[in-house]
Amino acid sequence: MNPSLKIIIILLLGLELTFTQHIIFNIWIVLLCLAILLFQRIKPKALMYLLLAPLLPAVGLLVSQLFYGANGKVFGWVLFTRLYAYAFSGAILVKTPLTKLTYSLEENLHLPPKMVYGVVSACALVSDFITEIKTIKIASSMRGITLHFWSPKLYFKAIIAAFRWSTQLAEAMISHGFVEEGQRTHLIQMKIKPSEIIAAVLIIVVVQIPIMV
């Protein structure tokens, strides 16, 4: 499905989740998303992560509601399942290739290219950034200083590197012909097909089943 359409569905569902206090509805969304993820052959490790990562905040919400909340036990479980519903619906986007998302945001949602390509190139820096943090730590150790993740120096150095890289990237984009307000052609035409819109509407309707019955 068109990535922009996916984002719109997820945002709409997210909004609905926020204003609905319905445990079955939350669980229904989790199950639907799980089915899609299994269909996309999500790796067991990634699935475990998706199940475990929200556990601590979800339990936190649950416990605070059970013991201290004014809205009762049921609301605690609503919050608990709601958090999982958010996490699972967001995970649907993970399998969407970044470039496809880029093209779609630019062509379908008409986001400024400056913003779209800026974000894409920044994503490419993540792995460099991890190496840079390691390098900074090693360079400090060699001078008899141990930097921990709470050391301001580590962040200061990391920010300096980030500034340097961002200028390099911006210069490189321009030298590859990118003009901020300029027109561009598009090799891959990201059209939204009528069938996809129908599918999107159906998905939103199907999701409402627990509320309707």
Binding site: S121, D128, L169, G177, Q183, T185, L187
Partner: peptide, 28 residues
């Protein structure tokens, strides 16, 4: 540029070349 890192916007070689040619308004 001198530094081979941080010269590319897109993740793959093909995508970067597409990016550059689209910027040049080459017809699809």
């Amino acid at each position: 540029f001198q530094n081979p890192n941080h010269q590319f916007t897109m993740p793959t070689v093909n995508n970067e070349m597409i990016f550059a040619l689209e910027n040049q308004r080459v017809s699809p």
